[in-house]
Amino acid sequence: MLAGAAALTLLVMVLLALAFRRGGAEAPGGRRAPAGLWLGGLGVAMPTTLLLLLLGSALVVGERMVARAAPERVVIGASGHQWYWDFTQPGADGPIVTRDVMHIPAGRPVDVRLQGNDVIHSFWVPRLAGKMDVVPGHVNLLRIEATRPGVFEGQCAEFCGLEHARHRFRVVAHDAAGWAAFQRGQQP
């Protein structure tokens, strides 16, 4: 996508530069540029083709990211507040609630059930997935997955008032043993 954008921009710039060179070279006016080529070809056909290709691939990628039923899937509740996050993980005996730190198993798909309470926030862990808004009155689902254990930074991405900048959180992805320990209530 980046290369394509750079190439197109370059094309426009080169065409512009050429227009000036040609203008300098041959003086007489009254020349007509072929409208069909410039407008029909470069103006309509070229962008339409490129865009259709791009759209198709985006749709495929997007579909893969949508939360679908999967075995092994873990559902974790996240609720955004001014200005903290509460996460509800499934534990061995009942849900485990944590504040500002979310625990997930690595290597398994996780569906985050986003629930709003006061104003709109947005759940965003750049390394794990795209963002999804937390809207009061609506429940949104976001599929994330950590391929390896580790700690990932998260950030509220929708402006939510005074402390929006500090509305951050952490996601801890455990290996299988760590996850089991967490579920038994043994904080690592």
Binding site: V12, L15, L16, A33, W38
Partner: peptide
């Protein structure tokens, strides 16, 4: 995009 190329064509 069509307008962009109309403008460049005009320059040409």
């Amino acid at each position: 995009g069509l307008q962009i190329f109309a403008w460049i064509g005009t320059l040409w």
